[in-house]
Computed example of a mutant assay.
Amino acid sequence: MTMTIKVYEVDRYGQTRIRRPTTEIAPVEVVEENFVCPPCQCPKCKAQQP
């Protein structure tokens, strides 16, 4: 079964803009045991990183 994703952004006035149109995504069957997401780069999380 596939999923769909659509990426958009909203400005401070509530207007939306499509960044990427709707795309079908096939989920992986098995997630590797050593899979790690990269650390978050937002200012709040960066301040907490050693």
Rank of each mutant, 00 (worst) to 15 (best):
A26C: 09
P43C: 03
Q15Y: 12
P27V: 03
C37E: 13
R12C: 08
P38V: 03
C42M: 12
R12W: 10
E29G: 03
R17W: 02
V36H: 11
P27G: 05
Y13P: 05
R17G: 07
E29I: 00
R19W: 11
C40Y: 04
A26L: 08
I25W: 14
V36E: 13
F35W: 10
E32S: 12
E32I: 00
E33S: 12
C37A: 13
Y8K: 14
I5C: 09
Q49I: 06
C42F: 10
Y8W: 14
Q15R: 15
K6E: 06
R17K: 15
E33R: 05
R12H: 09
I5D: 01
E32W: 06
F35G: 05
T2V: 13
V7W: 08
R19H: 11
D11E: 03
V7D: 10
R19I: 15
P38I: 01
N34K: 11
V28E: 01
P43Q: 06
R17M: 04
V7E: 11
K46S: 02
V31W: 10
C37S: 13
R17Y: 07
K44Q: 01
P27K: 05
K44G: 04
T23M: 14
T23K: 14
A26K: 02
P27E: 02
E9C: 15
M1H: 08
P39M: 01
T22G: 10
F35M: 03
P38M: 07
A47S: 15
E33G: 14
F35L: 06
T23F: 13
R19P: 01
T2S: 11
N34D: 14
V28K: 01
E32Q: 12
F35C: 02
D11W: 05
E33T: 11
Y8P: 05
E24H: 08
K6R: 14
Q15K: 15
Q49N: 03
M3Q: 11
P39C: 02
P39K: 00
Q41D: 14
P39T: 05
E32H: 12
V10K: 15
I18D: 07
R17D: 04
E29H: 06
N34C: 04
I5Q: 07
V36P: 04
K6S: 03
P21T: 02
R17Q: 05
K44R: 08
I25K: 08
Y13L: 09
P38T: 06
V10P: 00
P27L: 07
V10C: 15
E24F: 00
V30A: 07
T4W: 03
